[in-house]
Amino acid sequence: MRIKIIIIALLLNTSIFSQEKSLGLGLQMFNNIEQIEYCLPLPLKEMKEKSGSERCHHSFVGKKNKNTTIDVQGFYRDDTTISLETYFAETYNDETYANGKIVTQKEILKNKNCYYAIGYYNNFLDKYEFAEVTWVRKDEVMKMQIQYPTKDKKLWYERLKIIIKNAYCR
C-alpha cells in the first residue's frame, strides 16, 4: 500500500511539472487572488515585494539594484465603452512628454487586449528606462510599470515580450 502511494505521488508530481511551461530569463508566474485578478511572468527571485495596504496593487524592488522596480495594479473600469485605442491615445499624449517621460516605442496589441510603451525619463537619460503595459478587459484595467537601469534594457526588452505573450487570467 505504501509503495502505491509513493508511485501515485510521483506520477502526480511528474504530471504537474510537465505541464509547467519554462518561461526563461528568470521569469516565473506571479498570481494575485484579489478582486481584480492578474497573472504575470515576473523575475520574482530577483525582486522583493514591498509591503503595502492598497488592494490589487503589488510593488517590487530589485534585491541587487533598488532602482529596478515593478508596480502592478488593477482597476475597475468606470466606463466600459471606452476602447483600447482611446485608452492608448489618452495615456501617451503631449502631457506625457511634459511630465518628463520620453516614449521611444509604443504599440497597441489588439490580440492581447493591451498596449505598451518603452522609453526613458528626460532627467535620467542613459541611467534608467521604463516599460509600461496596460491590459484592457471587459470590466477591468490592469497596469504594469517597470523601471530598470539602461544597461539592462536588452534583458528587459526580451522579458517584456515574454510577459506580454504569457500574461493571462480568467
Rank of each mutant, 00 (worst) to 15 (best):
Q105C: 04
D79P: 03
T104C: 04
V133Y: 01
E54W: 09
V136L: 10
R159C: 00
Q73F: 10
I102H: 05
F124W: 10
T81E: 11
A131M: 14
Y128R: 13
Y128P: 00
D71V: 06
S83W: 03
F88M: 06
I82G: 05
H57M: 14
D78E: 12
S53L: 08
Y76A: 07
F130M: 03
S83Q: 11
I82L: 13
N67G: 11
Y92S: 07
D152I: 08
E140N: 14
E85H: 08
Y157F: 09
K101V: 09
K106Y: 06
K106N: 12
I102M: 08
E90V: 00
K48M: 13
K138I: 11
D94S: 12
T80C: 11
L155S: 09
K50W: 04
E132W: 12
L125M: 09
A98V: 13
T86R: 11
R159D: 00
T80V: 14
R137V: 00
S51H: 07
F60H: 02
S53Q: 03
K66A: 15
V141A: 13
I146C: 13
G100S: 12
P149S: 11
S59A: 14
G74P: 04
K138N: 14
I102Q: 10
V136E: 01
K151R: 15
H57G: 00
T104Y: 04
E49D: 06
V136A: 04
Y115N: 04
G52H: 09
W156C: 00
L109S: 02
Y76S: 07
D71H: 10
V141E: 14
Q147F: 11
K154G: 09
K48Q: 15
K63F: 02
Q105P: 04
